[in-house]
């Protein structure tokens, strides 16, 4: 199992860097090209949510992201240090008059993109773990 860990200051500009790193490692891990866009978006959503939460509660604390190649799966865990309550993904009703609240839209997007998602809110922060299938040998093994 290979792991890359990255911590970054809770600044919006760094979310793009986190997306790029995650996509590069996913590619090396052997995630299929057609899934890389989903990885990029889901990791970006998780990091954006963490950055926004830190800016509200603890702007000096860094956001942490772990990227793991684990037995044929590419696993990403984004951990923040801001207190969070239980979250429920929201999507609009068919009725056009309904305007969705945007707070949990990022979680809804992650749930729609990742093959496997676990959202663990808590008083000391939230952890979002998501994973996708990867080639057992990975590109790195070539």
């Amino acid at each position: 199992m290979a792991t890359v860990e990255l911590t970054f200051s809770a600044l919006p500009a760094h979310v793009r860097t986190a997306r790029l790193v995650a996509t590069a490692i996913a590619r090396r891990t052997g995630v299929a090209e057609e899934i890389l866009d989903e990885v990029r978006l889901a990791v970006g959503e998780a990091c954006s949510r963490a950055v926004e939460a830190h800016r509200l509660h603890c702007p000096g604390e860094p956001v942490r992201i772990e990227l793991r190649d684990d037995a044929g799966r590419f696993e990403v865990t984004v951990t923040d240090a801001a207190p969070s309550e239980d979250v429920t993904p929201q999507v609009p009703e068919a009725d056009n008059s309904f305007m969705p609240e945007m707070d949990n839209l990022g979680i809804a997007v992650i749930a729609g993109l990742a093959d496997d998602v676990e959202v663990l809110p808590g008083p000391k922060g939230m952890r979002i773990r998501m994973s996708w299938p990867a080639s057992p040998n990975g590109v790195a093994a070539l």
């Binding site: 609009p92 009703e93 056009n96 309904f98 809804a108 997007v109």
Partner: peptide, 11 residues
């Protein structure tokens, strides 16, 4: 895809 996932194609 992101519009479909969030249901915003209806909005």
């Amino acid at each position: 895809k992101i519009f479909r996932i969030t249901g915003l194609t209806k909005v």
